[in-house]
Amino acid sequence: MIEFQLDETSGVATYLQLVQQVHQALRMGMLEPGDQLPTAQQVVARLAINPNTVHKAYRELERAGLVRARPGLGTFVTRVPSGAAPVTQARFLAELTGWLRSARSAGLGPDDVEAIYRTAFRDCFAEGVA
């Protein structure tokens, strides 16, 4: 069984922190298919957070097909997340590298690029989680 931690200074929404920790535990092999996640009651009794936050995180994991809630029993890991196919990752890496080169030749420095990236990243992914 894993234990969740909260980083209150991260600015990342609490339920997302839980989601990310399950993802990470799956990738690191600390959680495997068949393993049970802590119950909402166990999580809130430890972290002093709203139970709905835990439910939201578990729903999100269920939507991603990583866990399944079995009524009366708990929430169990069903599979390990598969990252995007390597060929897809390679394509996006190549596109981003090309974009970075053109930004640099246009005179943008690392800070400029980072600011642009952060803004675009936030705009893009904030819509999905809001």
Binding site: A40, Q41, V44, A45, R46, L47, A48, I49, N50, P51
Partner: peptide
């Protein structure tokens, strides 16, 4: 913690 456990 006690309060949230009760809510759960």
């Amino acid at each position: 913690q006690g309060l949230m456990e009760a809510v759960a």
